[in-house]
Amino acid sequence: MVFAVRIDPALREQVEGLRGITEQSVNEVGVEALTAWVDNKLADEEVRDKAMAGIEEEERRLQERRSAIQKVLGATASTSGEAPGTGPSRSGRRGKSSDS
């Protein structure tokens, strides 16, 4: 995957100078910088709280969709204890038996 970032020319000069000293590739410098940024954000309590709030909101939306679909279908598979697709067949046909 290509990830292009536009940076200020002064910062680019600093990066190029340090790259020359450290003998790192542009890719290595980018990966190092992004890894540090991600680690920093994951350690931020506010960011973690926002992430959890987003997960909880998505779970709420999924539950609403599940309820709406169950009402439309008249299905109660999730409350009957049966996993979807494990109940009786709707077609009424039975599987082939080796006894016949």
Rank of each mutant, 00 (worst) to 15 (best):
R93T: 14
F3T: 04
R61D: 03
G20H: 07
Q63L: 13
V29R: 01
F3V: 11
P88C: 05
N40H: 14
G17C: 01
D49A: 13
D99N: 08
E59Y: 10
S89V: 07
R19I: 03
R65D: 04
K96G: 11
L62C: 10
R93H: 03
E46L: 13
D44S: 10
R48C: 01
A33K: 05
T22K: 08
D39P: 02
A43I: 11
S98D: 10
I21Q: 14
R6T: 14
K96L: 06
E32W: 03
Q63S: 13
A75W: 00
I55V: 15
S98Y: 09
E16I: 12
L42N: 13
Q24V: 09
L11I: 14
T79H: 08
R93E: 15
D39L: 04
R19E: 05
D49V: 13
S25R: 11
T79I: 09
R66K: 06
E56Y: 08
D99H: 08
A51F: 10
S80F: 07
G17P: 03
A51Y: 09
G87R: 05
R93M: 10
A33P: 00
S98T: 05
R65H: 00
V26D: 13
Q24I: 12
V5T: 06
A4P: 02
E58N: 10
F3R: 11
R61N: 06
L73D: 14
I7F: 04
S98H: 08
V26M: 07
R65W: 14
L11M: 05
R19L: 11
L34G: 07
E32R: 15
R61S: 13
V31Q: 10
F3P: 01
A77L: 06
L18C: 10
L18D: 14
V29H: 08
S25F: 15
E13D: 15
E32M: 14
V15H: 03
G85M: 04
G17H: 03
T79R: 15
S80G: 06
V31P: 04
G74W: 08
G30R: 01
V2S: 15
E45F: 11
E64K: 03
V72E: 15
L18H: 10
G85P: 01
A36Q: 07
G54C: 02
D39S: 13
S67F: 09
Q63W: 03
I69Q: 10
S78I: 06
V2D: 01
E64Q: 09
T22E: 12
